[in-house]
Nucleic acid binder design. Structure first.
Lengths: 334, 334
DNA sequence: ACTTTTAACGTAAACGTTTACGTTAAACCA
DNA sequence: TGGTTTAACGTAAACGTTTACGTTAAAAGT
């Protein structure tokens, strides 16, 4: 027994067209009928049916967000930003947890298409050709967040991984460190892995410090990668005084491993992280790290898809500034 | 130029009814026409329009999840579980970030109604009367996650906060601690605050240990609450040897504050947390805590709403078992 | 051989809106 | 006064499906 626009129309003695006009306040009715209709709507508790609306207007006020890992704190912050502006625009977000699986990604893309969503933000993954094709066929705006495509013309929102890694490394150097290791994402990872390694290498080079390949252990971005990587690193490079972690989770892994090995941070070992997640200030010691403005980036990504929706044109990519947040995991060497 | 069922029908020389039957594989067509139609669908790249479908079938294959704080790790895990089974059921989830604001909650409820979603999971908040009324009017299944209602008959998925707190406290006692403080959620919080305090009190009472009101500082569940609370606690109760934190975030706050005050955990102070978030194993020292099976609970909550959808009847609530996860933040006193 | 069943469709109404277009009466104008 | 504009509506088509019902011809039954 759901009540429709017809019920309202009947009870208010007007046509459904008039009710529609009033609900969407488009011109074409008198003050009095407006009053009347509004009152009837109240009495009946009428709410328009979004499906019927969307069928005609071709707008569902829904966007899709594709994330590889939903319970990562990075994603939480991104989603938080995205949700915020999406809600401001009167829309809502469907979260699609791809688990980095092509299968699930494609499934979700199908679903999103059938649901006729208005836009997509694609997060932290490489945009494969068939993903791109699928989305392109949907003919809706998409923007990439914390990733970019070298093959397809999709606007993105990012910080410069390379430069941020450069900054982090340089920071350690300026603090007097010379023997610096890195625990990074995989080299094969064109988006977040290799660029950060490049930035690290470049900083070392510019400051005329030696690097060996074994100084860089390329495992991944997780906590476990951090602890495993640190063991590997400390074996091959015992004289190390500082390490640059390619993510805060990795940094926490290092902290944890060091603690167990009775290596005191920062007195015996300095650690700098990457991301500035909320846990960065919760660790012991609090983590010095290079910050990405995560929530802001999420917001901007969403804003861009709405801008594209409204203007019907593409939009420029944004490189956000990174920033070193000094806490207590790095010590100045004298 | 989106292509519809009509285009398929025309090109395949059949009626739209037949196409529809084939797409939804309901009986009423021959093998050959099926072949033909399927092929045409391929060629044209036809995808059914979910809006039109939903308009008739009254199913949108979408559920809404209301969360107070999206970037909390607790929520991440819940959402992760919910998303998982929702996807298995061929549906998707809209996340609604209420920020614990009545305003935003009501807005989202409106939106969800207009979107004609199939079900709701309501998380970690008290269900106010008007929320309940709004949802009841939508006439769709809802289940509560990590919260419950004493006023309305809504099935829920929870652990027993009281008993879990009891267990945590008893664990400390069994480890030889006698002077135990607690940093908890607010007393006014009927859902997660007071019950945990009650559990704590009860365990102390049963083991004939004294408690003063100042031993319990009721601030909230955040990291900051943990550090502030610990300062307050240690001032009023310097001889303390252990503290029960009502959340892992609070526990981290305690760890952090203790570290700065040069109080060594666990040698000088034992800390037990609550939740078993992923960070619990990342902290230094790794946090002993009482675990809620967060992902499982999220899964179950979603399963229950789908069960209610299918059977059209309500469902029994579930109390999940908690469990002490021993790590290294609690020391045995001898 | 005749009726009855059944498989394989097609027709058209329905779902709940928006909106182009038509209609009416009042207001306005010269 | 007669014509023109305008405000305030109503009518009906359209959006893309699903589905109850009707139709036809072949298969089955007696």
């Amino acid at each position: 027994m759901t009540i429709t626009i017809k019920d309202v129309a009947k009870k208010a003695n007007v046509s459904i067209a008039t009710v529609s006009r009033i609900v969407n306040n488009k011109p074409g009715y008198s003050k009095e009928t407006e009053q009347k209709v509004l009152q009837v709507i109240q009495e009946l508790g009428y709410h328009p049916n979004g499906l019927a609306r969307g069928l005609i207007s071709k707008r569902t006020h829904t966007i899709g967000v594709l994330v590889p890992e939903i319970s990562s704190m990075l994603m939480s912050e991104f989603i938080s930003g995205i949700e915020h502006v999406t809600h401001e625009y009167g829309s809502s977000v469907i979260v699609c947890h791809t688990e980095s699986q092509g299968q699930k990604t494609r499934q979700y893309l199908q679903v999103l298409k059938e649901k006729q969503i208005d836009g997509i933000v694609f997060t932290s993954e490489v945009l494969k050709k068939d993903y791109y094709q699928l989305i392109k066929d949907m003919d809706i705006p998409m923007v990439m967040l914390s990733t970019e495509s070298f093959d397809f013309p999709v606007p993105y929102v990012k910080v410069s991984d390379r430069r941020a890694a450069y900054s982090a490394t340089e920071y350690l150097i300026k603090k007097g460190h010379r023997k610096i290791g890195m625990i990074s994402g995989r080299r094969g990872d064109i988006i977040a892995g290799q660029p950060r390694i490049d930035g690290f290498m470049e900083a070392m080079k510019v400051h005329e410090l030696p690097v060996k390949d074994e100084w860089i252990v390329a495992e991944g971005f997780s906590f476990e990668d951090g602890v495993n990587g640190f063991h590997k690193l400390i074996n091959q490079f015992p004289e190390i005084t500082a390490v640059f972690a390619a993510s805060d989770e990795v940094a926490l892994g290092i902290l944890s491993a060091a603690y167990k090995m009775n290596i005191h941070v920062p007195d015996q070992l300095s650690v700098i992280g990457y991301d500035n997640l909320r846990i960065a200030e919760m660790s012991t010691p609090p983590l010095t790290t290079v910050a990405q403005p995560l929530v802001e980036m999420g917001k901007k990504a969403a804003e861009l898809v709405f801008e594209m929706m409204e203007t019907n044109r593409s939009v420029e990519s944004r490189i956000f500034p990174h920033e070193i947040v000094e806490r207590q995991s790095v010590k100045e060497l004298s």
